[in-house]
Amino acid sequence: MDSYLTPYLPVLILLVIAGVMCTAISLLAGKLGPRRITSVKEGAFECGNPSTGDGHARHSVRFYLVALLFIVFDVESVFVYPWGAMLHDFQAQHLGWFAFGEMMSFMATLALGLVYVWRKGALNWSADVNS
């Protein structure tokens, strides 16, 4: 195994332990539980009403918009992290104000992007609410 990833092996071990535990409980539940299947039981549950239409109904395009906004803002925020961790080192090299200015201009661009999508109405969840 790559030595760079070796320190992370315990995470894998933790995941495996948790996985084995959950699988064991699942199997146990499968063994212990009764099995009396009827068509009513198997149907989609909608508060007792007979289900109509497709289970994979169409949904609002707004969810897609949220995903787009997430990509823009979250990925760019993650980009700021290394700078945040290095800021003390920059200061030690007397580059503090330079690093500060550079990243603040980046953050200002990000904020400008937020203003843009805000003005475009992309942040309004429902079309009739103009808050």
């Binding site: 909608e46 289970g55 109904a57 949904h59 707004r62 949220v66 925020s77």
Partner: peptide, 23 residues
């Protein structure tokens, strides 16, 4: 996987909310 409108809508909302508040 549930093949239920409400489950799907709930999941949609959960994901939208989670990624929004991730920022």
């Amino acid at each position: 996987a549930s093949f239920n409108k409400y489950a799907l809508l709930g999941a949609m909302r959960a994901v939208a909310q989670s990624i929004s508040y991730g920022v």
